[in-house]
């Protein structure tokens, strides 16, 4: 049974209260972020239906939003989602090499997840860190000025973190 914790439900209600009465649908994107964080890193149909129920809107209203925005995953992803920017400014600074290096190192293609379920590689379009390129988004943080050595360190750290 999908259900936010009491503490999280409090947060949900706090978010809904930011919008005028009857306009609770405005809280949809912030609450989908919470649902994705709490329920396995992606949004399956039961999760989206649960969000629809909370906001008293139709499930289709949730599906159409979840499929529109690139940060919502509608398929399972690895524990760590490596979103490497590849748009112009990052490309000028070698993002293609970084993407190729990660593919080779983790033995996966773009969009794939490693067999151990730890890493998914997802090429991303401009994330707003053009002056600190190349870069990737990892969860709620940016990893900038990437080099092959930095990628090695990062992956080793994440592997160690997953074990603990």
């Amino acid at each position: 049974m999908i259900k936010f914790s009491e503490e999280r439900l409090k947060k949900v209600n706090e978010i809904i209260a930011r919008y005028p009465e009857g306009k609770q649908k405005s809280a949809l994107i912030p609450i989908l972020h919470m649902a994705q964080d709490d329920f396995g890193g992606w949004l399956d149909a039961p999760t989206m239906d649960y969000v629809a129920e909370i906001l008293q809107i139709k499930p289709i209203e949730v599906y159409e939003v979840a499929t529109f925005y690139s940060m919502f995953n509608t398929k399972p992803v690895g524990k760590y989602l490596l979103e490497v920017c590849r748009t112009g400014p990052c490309m000028l600074n070698g993002s293609d090499d970084i993407i190729d290096y990660i593919k080779e190192k983790l033995d996966i293609k773009e969009g794939e997840t490693t067999a151990d379920g730890l890493f998914t590689l997802k090429p991303a379009e401009c994330l707003g860190a053009c002056g600190y390129a190349p870069m990737m988004q990892l969860g709620e943080h940016f990893k900038e000025h990437l080099t092959k050595e930095k990628v090695d360190t990062l992956i080793a750290e994440l592997r160690a973190k997953a074990k603990n």
Partner: peptide, 29 residues
């Protein structure tokens, strides 16, 4: 006056002001 931070979810188009408004209403941009 209250100020609220509303986080989007990855869509360049939401920088266009009417798409932003749609998104802020909980819809596609």
């Amino acid at each position: 006056c209250e100020i609220y931070v509303h986080r989007g979810a990855g869509a360049y188009i939401c920088g266009e002001e009417t798409a932003l408004i749609e998104s802020l209403e909980g819809k596609r941009g």
